[in-house]
Design a protein around this nucleic acid. Structure first.
Lengths: 212, 212
DNA sequence: CAAATAATAGCATGAATATGCTATTCCCGG
DNA sequence: CCGGGAATAGCATATTCATGCTATTATTTG
């Protein structure tokens, strides 16, 4: 079965180029190439694509808004965003809107087909330079840049992760095959190393510091 | 100039395979293939690679810890993580630690070389399935969707955030100017709404769900 | 080898927590 | 104006936790 693709792209020659690239390739079928999102819902309903190739920069309804609309109406639809700019903000907004992947327009035709295929299979293809931006977003957003500076032993990490799961001393003792007093002992050490004095604080610190 | 690559991989045949793949390809040079990270710093200082291919799962110092160490000592070094598992948590930790890219071991040899090249050029190559996980992490941890899906009242959220800070009932009572029994009352309701039965679980749920 | 550390285990005790009840007041929507 | 939820408050009690001690064994390391 061919992968049905719909293209939304305002630039005429690009649009036609993509149409021909997709239709001219085995395993792919371009069921529609539209210049704007004015009839977005209807276009999709009529052509029933599996994957949409969406330009981010478009007059009228822009690509990001379009993704938001499509996500609600057609949750199954995969959306591959395409852009000329490596703009962190647009990438971020596209991701939040629910785009499956994000590639640059400088991507070669054969790679574009690969990407469409990967999108269809549930992957999230991204141009490496886009991925760099995404990683930056992840690390910047995470207030937890400190990873295990607490020097916990393996056993202590194990016990701590049990605490995070909400287990009582008794349960931890049973699941780790040690006595409850040993559990106490480990938790003592954990508290010292984390500089806390209660289960709650330990759990909060553990999760926030990503040491679980 | 060839791209100098160092490999850290505990599996012998994989390690040798990578060594030969890299050395046998134009534009690449494998300056070292190590089975563990025991002499991590020295190995890098001696071989001066531009890119490191690092296995995540390794005995002794694991890949993620290794990345942390390398980031500090050699900020310029690019690190490409390799793993058999698509484990969100490990991917996330690798990213936080500062890995440049993340690929699966099922990646074909020619793609591995592409990925090394892209890493060297500042990109962040990822296997599409890994990228899917990363996108999920981004959307999940975005303070964007900080929706109160548990339907906690304002007061309850306030009490809950006190719990997360590690405060005792007594302290919460004082800081909120209510009696300790009222605190108990609120915490009862919180437990019901979060479907938990202990302070620890409540804190874990609160932090993980971003409802604080 | 001696010192240090991790993991194990025990005991005791005061403090904190979880949960079973009940009850009053205020405010909001039907 | 009545019912219901939210915030307040109280009491009782069993369970769990935090932390004060000590002690053995194995492994690591200087």
């Amino acid at each position: 079965m061919d992968i049905k693709v719909a293209v939304f792209e305002d630039n005429k020659s690009l649009r036609q180029g993509l149409y021909q690239l997709i239709n001219g390739s085995d395993g792919f079928e371009c069921v529609g190439a539209f210049e704007d999102c004015m009839n977005l819902i209807k276009d999709i309903e009529d052509t029933k694509p599996k994957v949409v190739l969406m330009d981010i920069e478009m007059p009228g309804i822009n690509g990001i808004e379009a993704v938001n609309i499509l996500r609600q109406k057609f949750p199954e639809l995969k959306i591959l965003m395409q852009t000329i700019f490596e703009d962190s903000d647009k990438i971020f907004k596209s991701i939040l809107a629910g785009a499956s992947g994000y590639i640059l327009k400088t991507t070669s035709p054969s790679r574009i087909l690969d990407f469409i295929k990967e999108t269809c299979e549930g992957g999230a293809p991204m141009s490496p330079s886009v991925a760099t931006k995404v990683l930056k977003i992840v690390t910047q957003q995470s207030p937890f840049l400190k990873v295990n500076s607490f020097n916990l032993s393996e056993r202590e990490k194990e016990i701590l992760s049990c605490l995070v799961k909400g287990m009582s001393y008794k349960l931890i003792a049973d699941s780790c095959f040690i006595s409850i007093d040993t559990v106490r002992g480990h938790i003592r050490s954990i508290y010292e190393k984390l500089h806390v004095h209660s289960k709650g604080e330990a759990i909060a610190t553990a999760i926030k510091s990503n040491i679980i």
